[in-house]
Write a protein that binds this DNA or RNA. Structure first.
Lengths: 173, 173
DNA sequence: GACCAGTTCTGCGAAATCCGCAAGGCGAGG
DNA sequence: CCTCGCCTTGCGGATTTCGCAGAACTGGTC
């Protein structure tokens, strides 16, 4: 019914062997990847259109999307540039820590002003992106809430001046 | 018909005076903010439900969402953790530059491996997030493509080990 | 090979949503 | 007064969503 994509799908695309060891995360086959890719282009694209593109029925796409959402593998959301949207201060904070770094990362995760937390290798152990109402708020979060966390050795801040690019199209290359 | 939200809306929410000067971006009133907020929670929420929440008709919400999309104020997309999705290397790169920094940022923006570019104040002029297939690819992008850009004085890389948090809920606080 | 349990896909109707369009209200400005 | 921009209401038709039942495939076991 829907082109020749169907014929090859069940034969080879479902192969999960290439996943290797990437942290025990719920393995994704090529079909789910293709679905995610469709939704990276347009988060509101109808299931039927996605199904046609990846070679699956509408209902099957719906189930897989729901599972991906439930598993937390992806989220479908509106993204903006907070700076554009208005009167806010944003910054990236590099953190040097000692002891249980992951616990510090968890503490950051619990802060509502923190949008993005990633553990890194390099001269910072953690990078955290912060979105605030104004300078006072930003200062408060960085100096009072973050620097006072046990294990935080030092921090360095990079206040955002202008967001130049923000995409989610890694699947489309 | 839709609760008391309507009554107050036209009276005060449409006031654009608090926008201040934030870069000549298309000013948003409180209603559009509320719509964005709804879509930050669920990018697929139906227009009627959004309308009920913000006190607008379904058709009006539809028009505003379309305009916000067209203007590039927001995008509705699926977001994932590339590391979770599989076999990739990701890094944040801090860049020190001389001369026209914005031009360098534009050059970074043109690279498909670069997902995120922001100009900052601090010890880096630019922060760029990179998503790659593997180590070789990452090395190639950083050392060959970025460091060779005219005006780039130095770079420092932070390879991602683990993404701990990634949200878009600034509207919901 | 046969059987079975679990999972995934397909194929439907029914309900809800999307989408374009037209007619009218209403406030802001010229 | 008139225009412009935006919202509302209402409408129908096309499309999409959603739940469910049956079929198909997978992996494990005997």
């Amino acid at each position: 019914m829907h082109s020749e994509a169907v014929a090859s799908r069940s034969a080879d695309q479902r192969d999960p062997s290439r996943e290797s060891r990437n942290g025990g995360s719920p393995q994704l086959d090529a079909v789910s990847l293709a679905i995610i890719q469709q939704l990276q282009e347009d988060g509101r694209r109808p299931y039927a259109a996605i199904g046609k593109a990846v070679g699956l029925s509408e209902a099957a796409v719906r189930q897989r999307v729901q599972k991906l959402l439930d598993q937390g593998v992806m989220q479908i959301v509106a993204v903006t540039d907070p700076l554009t949207v208005g009167f806010r201060r944003q910054a990236m904070v590099g953190i040097n820590a000692e002891g249980d770094v992951e616990k510090i990362a968890d503490a950051l995760t619990d802060m509502s002003e923190v949008e993005y937390v990633v553990m890194t290798a390099g001269s910072f152990d953690i990078l955290a992106e912060i979105v605030c109402e104004d300078d006072d708020h930003l200062l408060d979060v960085i100096n009072k809430r973050i620097r006072s966390l046990p294990g935080v050795r030092s921090t360095e801040s990079f206040v955002y001046l202008k967001l130049k690019k923000q995409t989610y199209m890694w699947g489309t290359r």
